[in-house]
Nucleic acid binder design. Structure first.
Lengths: 200, 200
DNA sequence: AGCCGCGGAATGAACGTTCATTCCGCGAGG
DNA sequence: CCTCGCGGAATGAACGTTCATTCCGCGGCT
């Protein structure tokens, strides 16, 4: 029998493209051990490619971490805005955001951990930083709209975002630490509490 | 002319003990660049001691980061509990906590950043992890007391802690990112909002 | 004078990165 | 339909660098 198919995948992935396999492996390792704590050859091994192959797809380790950051940050931003119920009441719009954040953190928990850990790191480039602000834009607009219609407290939009997202991250971290199980009931109760924080 | 005076401090600190100078330098560098991103000789240089001297006071780089973590985590815990107004209304007790967290984050901003960044890292040892739980204990008791007296929502105490502390960290991170200035007015407004999240 | 403790060059391991080489699918020629 | 050889992707040993850690000579104190 000939070994015609699958000339690749000696160790793990690479069913997908080598580039994606490298991004996936890097996400897993960077999320666990951090950027400086992860050796490039280890990324390559987990991806099922040779060490040199990493440099065929990315100019450097820094370029890799930035590509990964941008890949997931953009997906996160899209998750938040796709299907946003522009016509619904503010209360429902807030629930929508909360559930979308939860959905992302659940479906892509490694990526969420990676994004959290690499938030504003020194090795993130200008494009990575710009992306963050672009994502915040529509959310800021939502908050200011809701304030104009008298539903939310009149606080700086940046403060509202920091409180809400910070609270969510606090939950996720508590669950990582094993202090708290993020059951649907807990998530709902948290959502209701955070709503109380920002509603007028 | 003899170089009799100042055998130490060729570059910076060491007015204090060498051990403390090393801890201070490590705090600054670990907070900025992370554990793996910081070279031990760099810590030594900033502390104003030789590279070998670091190993006179700490067995290894890991021992250093754990000593540093424990040093500041314990101080943070003490800051929260020292002078706690056991007889005051819950509303005032909550404000006390909030202000103490703020006081710590302001007075020891590097240490706060360090503690945040090294939260639950792989190189933290059992003692470092135990310390975290010990600090949470009295706060959990406060929350459950306040729930029994009907002032706070009946949520798992761990959820309340995660929301409140997470929200605060969200604020601090937003200010680090330059999105928000943590003026007394902003801090007060945030405190009031977070109180609304947890009060019944 | 002797000793203690420090400094910083020395050390070997591990890192990010490179590059000479191998590998493989494909199309041309038989 | 098979064979051959081309081109580009992948490889991983090897390179120079940087790291954590060690070690030893020097200088200040008693």
């Amino acid at each position: 029998m000939r070994a015609a198919r699958r000339r690749t995948a000696p160790r793990k992935r690479v069913e997908e493209s080598p580039r994606q396999a490298i991004l996936d492996a890097a996400c897993e390792l960077f999320a666990d051990r951090g950027f400086h704590g992860t050796a490039v050859p280890l990324v390559a091994e987990l991806a099922g490619v040779g060490a040199g192959t990493v440099y065929r797809y990315f100019d450097s380790k820094e370029a890799l971490v930035n590509a990964l950051y941008q890949f997931w940050k953009e997906r996160f931003g899209r998750t938040l805005m796709d299907g946003f119920p522009f016509q619904a009441p503010v209360r429902d719009q807030f629930r929508f955001f909360w559930q979308k954040i939860d959905e992302f953190a659940r479906k892509h928990s490694r990526a969420f951990a990676f994004l959290e850990l690499h938030h504003h790191s020194a090795y993130l480039d200008a494009k990575s930083r710009r992306l963050e602000i672009e994502i915040l834009g529509p959310i800021k607009a939502f908050i200011e709209d809701a304030q104009r219609s008298g539903v939310l407290k009149e606080l700086p939009a940046e403060l509202v975002m920091a409180l809400v997202y910070g609270a969510f991250v606090g939950l996720v971290r508590a669950s990582w630490a094993g202090y708290l199980a993020l059951t649907p009931e807990v998530l709902d109760a948290a959502e209701a509490s955070v709503w109380d924080a920002i509603r007028r």
